[in-house]
Structures are given as C-alpha cells and as structure tokens.
Design a protein around this nucleic acid. Sequence first.
DNA 1: CGCTCGGTAGACCGATCAGTCTAGTGAGGG
DNA 2: CCCTCACTAGACTGATCGGTCTACCGAGCG
Lengths: 207, 207
Amino acid sequence: MTGGTPPETEAPGTEASSVRGRLLAAASRLFYARGINATGIDAVIAEAGVAKQSLYNTFSSKDELTRAYVTARHEEWLELYRARVAQADCPRDRVLAVVDAYLDHASGTYEHGFRGCGLLNAAAEFPAGSPGREAVRRHKEQVQSLIAGHLAETGSADPELAEHLAFLLEGAMSRAGLEGRPDLLLSARRLAAGMLDPRPDARRDAR
Amino acid sequence: MTGGTPPETEAPGTEASSVRGRLLAAASRLFYARGINATGIDAVIAEAGVAKQSLYNTFSSKDELTRAYVTARHEEWLELYRARVAQADCPRDRVLAVVDAYLDHASGTYEHGFRGCGLLNAAAEFPAGSPGREAVRRHKEQVQSLIAGHLAETGSADPELAEHLAFLLEGAMSRAGLEGRPDLLLSARRLAAGMLDPRPDARRDAR
DNA sequence: CGCTCGGTAGACCGATCAGTCTAGTGAGGG
DNA sequence: CCCTCACTAGACTGATCGGTCTACCGAGCG
C-alpha cells in the first residue's frame, strides 16, 4: 500500500501514456469543447480509450475528475507562463509574459474550437461557493498578483494598474472566446504594452 | 390564425402574471444560479408554479426556453442601460452609463448569489458555433459599440479606446462574479473614468 | 345549460446519466 | 509454472433527464 509512484519529471499522473494521463487529456478536450455538465462519463472513457472501471479506480467520482481537470488546467497555464517569463528580460516584458501565456493557451486550443478560458467556462458551471469555483477564483487572483509582482519590479508598484491589466486581460480572453478570434488577445497585449510604456502620449505607433 | 396578442406595454409575455412571464422569471433565477444544463425542466416548472404541459404549450423545448432566457436577459440589460443613459448629460457619463447598467444588474442579483454576467455564463455552456453563443457574442459586440458611439460624441472617436473599455468592463464583471464582490465593478468604473478624463496625469483623485 | 379552452396534476416513455459489478485477459514476477 | 494485479469489455442499477399523454378542473360564453 506504500505504492511508490513512478519517478516523475512532470506533475504526477500527467504522462500521456498512463491511464490517469489519458483520462485527464480526454476530459480536458471534452470539458473544454462541450462543457462539463454536458459531457458524460462514457464520452470521456471513449475518448481516452480506457475502461469505465479504470476511471473509477483512478478517480472516485466525476466530481473528482472535474477537480483534477481544473487543477491540471491551472498548472498547464502556469507552465506556459513560466516558459514565457523566463524569456523576458525586463519587468515590462514579464508583465506581458502573462498575456503571452494566455496567447499560447489560445493558439493551442484554437484548432479544436477556441472557446476562451477553460477555467472561467468551468466556473460558470459551478455553484456560487463551490470548491471548483473557489479554485478558479484563486487562479485569477494569482494571475493578477503575478502582474502586480512584475509591476513592483519596476518600482512603480501600482495596485490599481495591476487590477486594470488583469481585468483587461480577462475581458479580452472572454471576448476572444466569444468571437472565436484568439487574435483579440493581441489587441489586449498592445493596449497593455501602451499602458506600460513610460511615454504618456506617443500612442498610435501602429505596428 | 391572426392571433391578436394582448396590448403590450412591455416585451410580449414578460408580465409577471402570465404563464410565459412566470416561466421566464423562474428560468432566469435558476439558470443564473445553477447554470442551464444543471437545471431540469421539473425545477423550472416547480419554481414557476406551473404545470409541465403549460411549459410545452409556451415553449416547444428546453432549447427554446433557453433561447428566450438569453433574449430576455439581453433586453433586461438594455433596459437598465437606457434608464442610466437617459440620466447622463455628457458623453463621458454616457460611457459610464454602460458600466452603471452592469452595476445595476449586479446589485439586482446580488442577494441570491452573484455569479457575474448571466449571458457570459450561459455562453460557457453553449457549443462553439451555436445560436445561443452567437446571441451572447452579438450582445457583447453591442455593448462595445454603445461605448464606441458615446466616445464618438466626444469627437475623439478612438476604436481602440472603446475596445479597451469593453475588455476592462467584461473582465471586471467576470472577476466580480468569481469573488462574489459586485463592488469590483466600482473599481472598473473608477479606472474607466480615469481613462475618459482629459488630463493625462492628475490621477489618484480618490473619491 | 353545455361547450370550449387554458390550465393543472401527474403518470408515463425512452434515453441517458453516474456509478457498480462480473468476467475475462495478458504481462510480469515469484 | 502459476499467481497477482492492472486493465478491458460490457451488462446492469436506480435516478433523472426532456418530453408526451391522459384525465380533470373551472371560468367564460353562446
């Protein structure tokens, strides 16, 4: 019962080969594309190519699978963000790395029907004080606090600016999902960059 | 077959007394609080105090009820917006009237568990190209174009600014719903007001 | 009076849901 | 060799889903 998990280089059970990994990948695709409540267990196991009992050996219920989905999506985003922030070499670019992480996420899910932020969509299906909704709330708070942290690096730690950028990014993601146009995030990136540049005028430096 | 509808002072069938009105009101409460897919027909008719057959005499399917819900919510928002814009006496305040309409909506649904924009939440449950999702897309486009129209009144018609304000508002609404704090919309209103004021500096005129 | 008609109450239908259970298979290790 | 164990395939259960159907009620009206 000590059950040594295999040596893990990534998050436990995210490997594409394992039952758990395939279930999470399948759930991720279907939950994102169709919504959680509209996706049956049978569809998940068919997509994963896994027996029903294997699902219930791995997750105790659909609810637990749903929680794992939310957690996994949060961590995937963090991974994208870390990769982007590592490439940025000034605080300004590190703020924009947050936007870039969303852009990466969008371009990744675009081909299969872009529907905006999977976590926000999931939250829309959770009741008002539920654990899932709280998890999404914390994710969005973390996004804002990452922005605030990078702003603090610039010396001008303005919490209002962090909130402004977080709202801007969040709204752009929603609208991009509705329009099916991930490129709306580029508009948001441009607007954010404009707010970060020291020059108060000198706008309209159209690319 | 000419079927004269009764004289209507408001949208047809929105009267609180009629079967259709009670069904829409009940669906509105339940769909908003629990989500659409998670709300069964039986719950709707129980909440409305109406027989099941009456629902199917009024709407041909749950899908049609859902469409009516989306339309009604859109028109309710428009009504709040019109009332607010009528009180505003300069273009700047008319832009902010769009924010105020969301604030009114938020304070209206607060007591029963505020969960953000009902239309955006509904869209999260609709598949990628569905009519319902398109309706929400058009609603959000209209919000942005209302902002753009009021900006145009000021002479400085800046489409980027309209988009920026629309994103800001949308993101604030989502975050306010996640946090259960409608007052976050007041932050967005303050930020928007700051962007509308002619002074490029002179921020931090805290209320 | 008797007929129509909008409405109610609730049984009923087939489909689908989440979840359980049984039987069987195949690889790995003693 | 056989035993174990993770896994598969799929039947099965009870609940719930959206939707239909029947029976009944009562107000309005000719």
